[in-house]
Amino acid sequence: MRTGGETDSNHAKASAAMEFLLFLLFLVLLVAASATGLTADSHDSADWKPSDDGRRWRSRTS
Rank of each mutant, 00 (worst) to 15 (best):
G4E: 09
G5V: 01
G5T: 02
G5M: 02
G5H: 01
E6W: 07
T7A: 04
T7Y: 07
T7W: 05
T7Q: 08
T7G: 00
D8Q: 07
D8S: 09
S9T: 09
S9L: 12
S9P: 02
S9Y: 08
S9I: 00
N10Q: 15
N10G: 04
H11A: 11
H11R: 14
H11S: 05
H11G: 06
H11F: 10
H11N: 12
K13A: 10
A14Y: 07
S15L: 06
S15R: 08
A16C: 06
A16T: 08
A16F: 06
A16R: 05
A17M: 04
A17I: 07
M18F: 03
M18T: 04
M18K: 12
E19L: 13
E19N: 10
E19Q: 10
F20W: 15
F20Y: 14
F20Q: 10
L21M: 14
L21S: 01
L21R: 02
L21Y: 02
L22N: 02
L22V: 03
L22S: 09
L22W: 05
F23D: 11
F23Y: 12
L24C: 06
L24R: 15
L24E: 10
L25F: 15
F26N: 05
F26K: 11
F26G: 03
V28C: 00
V28E: 03
V28N: 08
V28P: 00
L29W: 04
L30P: 00
L30H: 01
V31M: 01
V31W: 02
A32F: 06
A32G: 02
A32D: 04
A32H: 04
S34A: 14
S34V: 01
S34K: 07
S34C: 08
T36Y: 12
T36I: 15
T36A: 12
G37W: 00
G37I: 00
G37Y: 00
G37M: 00
L38K: 13
L38R: 14
L38D: 13
T39F: 02
T39M: 03
A40L: 08
A40R: 15
A40M: 11
D41A: 08
D41M: 10
D41P: 00
D41W: 07
S42E: 13
H43T: 01
D44F: 07
D44E: 15
D44N: 15
S45Y: 09
S45D: 09
A46S: 13
A46E: 12
A46I: 03
D47H: 06
D47M: 11
D47L: 15
K49C: 12
K49D: 05
P50I: 04
P50A: 05
S51Q: 15
S51T: 11
D52N: 14
D52H: 13
D53Y: 15
G54C: 11
